[in-house]
Amino acid sequence: MTLCAIDARTPALAAEALQRSMQQADFARVLLFTHGPFTAPAGIEVVDAGPIRSGAEYSHFVLRRLPAHVPAGHVLVTQWDGFVVDASAWSDDFLQWDYIGAVWDDQPAATCVGNGGFSLRSQRLLQAGLDARIVQEHPEDAMLARTYRTLLEGTHGVRFAPPAVARRFAFENEAPAGATFGFHGPKNLPAVLDAPTLRRWLAALPDDFFRGRDARRLARALLARRMPAVARQLLARRRAAGRNDFNTWMLDLAAQLSRPFGKEPT
């Protein structure tokens, strides 16, 4: 199995996430696709993929260019905000499916699998993604799992894992009911990283992260995990990024940060 991440924006964080997966499991190859000079830790092959400046360019790479770099076996596609957390939750049953990703909780059961940010993909799925009839590419996971699912299943024989299997494989928006192999999503980071690591990761993220919805979700998760110092850092970065949007959620956050929390977890 190949482990990979595609990241030209925060390659250092992507490399650290890859390392965390490597600490949990052995992979035949570990690839980091980025752009420009970057020295990765031992065991990670760096591939210059050229500029990847947007989500649409990321989707194009995953659908159209990644298959050439993974000519055999399965690939575990990850991002900076997702990695393997419990190798004991692995099951060889996962390998019988062509695509597994965390469940989307806002989709019907027939098309709720799955999120691409931490996803297992077979050769059949990779090659199917090259089909010229796939004319919409972004976001690539929604295109595969929803928009073109009938084409992939009917023409290419692609098998999407059922929701019960996907929930054992990874979590994203749903809280896990038990142990999972991995996860995806910034709001889940406080459950798997300590406060010093989170502070360091926040310092490494670009301003555009703090302007978006993921920053709001992460702020709430930090408070739920009783990490007010990290939440303050996030709020300061959001202000510095130009989002002085003191709407309801930020007023609530500011109020919660003013209350005593006791000792913050380390």
Rank of each mutant, 00 (worst) to 15 (best):
P139L: 10
M227I: 05
Q23W: 01
A229V: 11
G43H: 03
L76G: 02
F169G: 01
P176D: 09
A219G: 15
E16M: 01
Q127R: 15
P260H: 06
P186S: 13
R239Y: 12
M143C: 14
D48K: 11
D141V: 13
N115I: 07
A42F: 01
V103H: 03
N115W: 07
A5H: 07
E174K: 05
R232N: 01
D207S: 13
A12N: 06
P37A: 15
L234Q: 02
L120P: 11
S258N: 14
L235T: 05
V165K: 03
G116R: 04
A14Y: 02
F83Y: 15
V158R: 06
A224C: 08
R226N: 15
A42I: 00
L120I: 11
A72N: 02
L198K: 03
I134N: 06
P196V: 03
T248Y: 13
S88R: 13
D105W: 05
H138G: 06
V230D: 00
D7K: 03
F61D: 09
R53I: 07
D208G: 01
A229L: 14
Q123M: 04
E153I: 13
R243V: 15
A177Y: 03
F38C: 03
R237I: 06
E140I: 14
P196R: 06
A241E: 04
P108Y: 10
T78G: 03
V75M: 11
V62P: 02
D194R: 02
G50T: 10
R239T: 13
L205C: 05
L31F: 07
A236K: 10
R199D: 10
A72P: 00
N247D: 15
P108Q: 07
N244L: 15
A25D: 02
A87H: 03
Q96T: 12
A221D: 10
D208R: 13
E153M: 13
F246T: 11
E16Y: 01
G129D: 06
D48C: 07
L205G: 02
A175W: 10
A254T: 15
A203F: 06
P196T: 04
P41M: 02
V77S: 11
W249L: 14
W90C: 01
Q96R: 15
V75I: 13
Q79S: 09
T266N: 12
R168C: 12
T111S: 11
V113H: 09
Q127N: 13
V192W: 08
F83K: 00
A170C: 06
G55S: 06
D245R: 13
Y148I: 12
